[in-house]
Write a protein that binds this DNA or RNA. Structure first.
Lengths: 271, 271
DNA sequence: ACCCGTGAGTGACATTTGTCATTGTGACTA
DNA sequence: TAGTCACAATGACAAATGTCACTCACGGGT
C-alpha cells in the first residue's frame, strides 16, 4: 500500500537542490552545498520544505533565509508526545507530514481534542506562541516529521520580517475560524450531525490535499474521535451505525468510504 | 445606579489632553489642538484611548500615530448590529465600552454565540482579519462605543510597524485560548458544569476589570446565555435553579450574585 | 497455530437534555 | 390603574445520550 505522507516527503526532498540554489542566488549550475554545510542535507532542506506550506510559501527570499538559520528537522514516532500541557513552551513546530492531535485533559480524566494538525505547514502550537507554558498537549497519531525552531527565534525573526508576522497571523486566523466552526458544531448539533460534519471535513481536507478519494484514512481511534466530537464512544458508534444503515458511508476498520457526500452535508447542517 | 462603562469612558476622555500632547511630542504646556484639527475632539481621542487597551497600550509613539490617522469613533445602540455574516468585511472595531456578542447562525435557526467582547481593547472581528466576508454576526448587547478603521488600513499599518502585528497576534492568541476553553467546556461538560464555568468566567472578568464585586451584571438574556453554553433555555433554567437551591449563587432578574465561588470552581472542573 | 492484548462494538438501563404548550412576572405605556 | 408585551419560568413527556459490563474481531508476537 502506498503511504502518501512519505511519498510527499520524497517529492519534497527531490526539490531541495533547486531550492537551496535559489536561496543562495546561485547560478543554476553551481555546487549545492547549501548555506549550512556542516548540517546534513535533511536539515538544510527544512527551510526549503516551507515552500509547500500553506502559509510560508509566499515569503520572500530574505525572510526565508532568516528563518532557515534556525530551522531543524525532527521526526516523531506514532504515539510519541510532542509536548504536554504544563511544559515550558520552548519550540514551535511546522508540520511536514503525518498527523498530530492537540488536546486538553480535564481533571476527571476526560480529554477534548480541539485540533488535528494534518496539513503540511500547520503551525504547532499556534495558540501558545505568546505563552510560557503549554496549555494543551500534542501527540503524534502517526509517524510525523516536522521543522522546528525555538519559539523565541521565531518571534525575533518576526520582528525583523513583517512578512513572517503576516504568515503567522494568517495561520492564526485560519485556526480561529476552525475553532469557531468546532464551537458551533459542539454547541448546536447532535451526535449525528457532528459526525456528519466531521466526515465532510475529512472529505474536504482529503480533496484539498489531493489524497486518494476513495477511502478516507483516519488515524484516530473511536474513543479519540468521540473525544473530539464531544460524545462518548457508545454514542459515536450508534451514529456510525445509523449512517452506515442509510448507505451514506461505508465503515472499514481503518478508513471511511463516503458514499453520499451530499446527504452528509445536508445532515451536517442540521435537519 | 452607576453605569460603569460610561464612567470608564468619562475617565478616558479625561486623559485625552495629556495623551494627545504626548503623541505630538509637545511640551506639557502647549496648545492641544491634536494632529487632526479638522476632526472633533471625540474622534481625535480615539487613538489615545488605545492606551487603555490590553493589546495596544504597549505600542510606540510612531506606531500609534500611524494608526491614529485612520481611527474614528462610533457608537452603537443596544441591540444594534455591527455587521452580519456574509457582509463585506470592511472595518475593524476596537471596543471601548459596552458588550458585543459575536455569533454564528445555523440554517435551522439556532445560533451559537462564540465570543463576548467586553474587555476594552478587544478587536472585532479578530477572526475575519484576512477574510473578505464576515463569517459571523455581531450585535451590541448594550450601548457600545468603539474605535474603528478600515481593515485594509490596519493591515497596511501592520506592514509598516511590526509592533502592530505583534499586538494583533497577541490578541489572536488570547482569542485562540478562549476558544479552546470554550470547546473544552462544550465538548466535555454537562449543563451544570458549563453554567458554573460561565459564572466563574464572569466573576473573574469582573474582578479583572475591577467592577463591583457583589452583583455580576450580564446583558445576555436567558435564551442568549443558553445559546452560548450550547444548551436550551429549559436546561439552563434547571441548572440555575439547582445552583440557587444549593446556595451557590443568587439569581436576580438582571444579575447574578456569587455566594460560593470556590464551590462553583469545583463544579466547573467536572465532578 | 496459538495466545493475548487492544480496540471495536453491543445490550440494558439510568440520566440528562430537549420539546412544547402554558403560566408567571416585571416594566412600560396609555 | 389597567393593559400589553417581552422575557422568565414551569410541567409533563419524549428523545438523546451516558454508563457499565460485556462480547467480538483483528493483529502481533512467540
Amino acid at each position: 500500500m502506498l503511504s502518501n505522507p512519505d511519498k510527499m516527503l520524497t517529492r519534497l526532498l527531490f526539490h531541495i537542490s533547486m531550492l537551496s540554489r535559489i536561496y543562495r542566488n546561485d547560478p543554476p549550475g553551481a555546487n549545492i552545498a547549501g548555506p549550512c554545510p556542516d548540517k546534513p542535507a535533511e536539515i538544510r532542506c527544512a527551510a526549503c520544505i516551507m515552500d509547500t506550506s500553506l502559509y510560508f510559501s509566499g515569503l520572500g527570499i530574505e525572510a526565508k533565509r532568516d528563518l532557515q538559520q534556525y530551522l531543524q528537522l525532527k521526526r516523531f514516532r506514532k504515539r510519541e508526545v510532542l509536548y504536554q500541557a504544563g511544559d515550558e513552551c520552548q519550540y514551535v513546530y511546522i508540520l511536514l507530514s503525518g498527523e498530530v492531535k492537540i488536546y486538553k485533559s480535564l481533571l476527571n480524566g476526560k480529554q477534548q481534542i480541539h485540533k488535528l494538525a494534518q496539513i503540511p505547514g500547520d503551525v504547532i502550537p499556534c495558540e501558545d506562541l505568546f505563552v510560557d507554558r503549554h496549555g494543551s498537549s500534542a501527540l503524534a497519531l502517526e509517524d510525523v516529521s516536522v521543522c522546528y525552531l525555538k519559539r523565541q527565534d521565531l518571534l525575533d525573526s518576526t520582528d525583523r520580517y513583517g512578512e513572517i508576522a503576516t504568515c503567522l497571523m494568517r495561520s492564526m486566523s485560519r485556526n480561529l475560524n476552525a475553532y469557531i466552526r468546532h464551537i458551533t458544531n459542539l454547541g448546536q448539533k447532535n451526535a449525528l450531525e457532528r459526525l456528519a460534519s466531521f466526515l465532510v471535513y475529512l472529505y474536504d481536507t482529503h480533496h484539498q490535499r489531493n489524497l486518494n478519494r476513495g477511502a478516507l484514512q483516519e488515524a484516530l481511534s473511536r474513543v479519540e474521535l468521540a473525544d473530539m466530537l464531544g460524545i462518548t464512544q457508545r454514542t459515536l458508534i450508534r451514529s456510525l451505525r445509523k449512517l452506515e444503515m442509510e448507505k451514506l458511508v461505508e465503515i472499514r476498520r481503518d478508513a471511511f468510504v463516503i458514499q453520499d457526500i451530499d446527504a452528509l452535508r445536508i445532515i451536517s447542517h442540521g435537519a
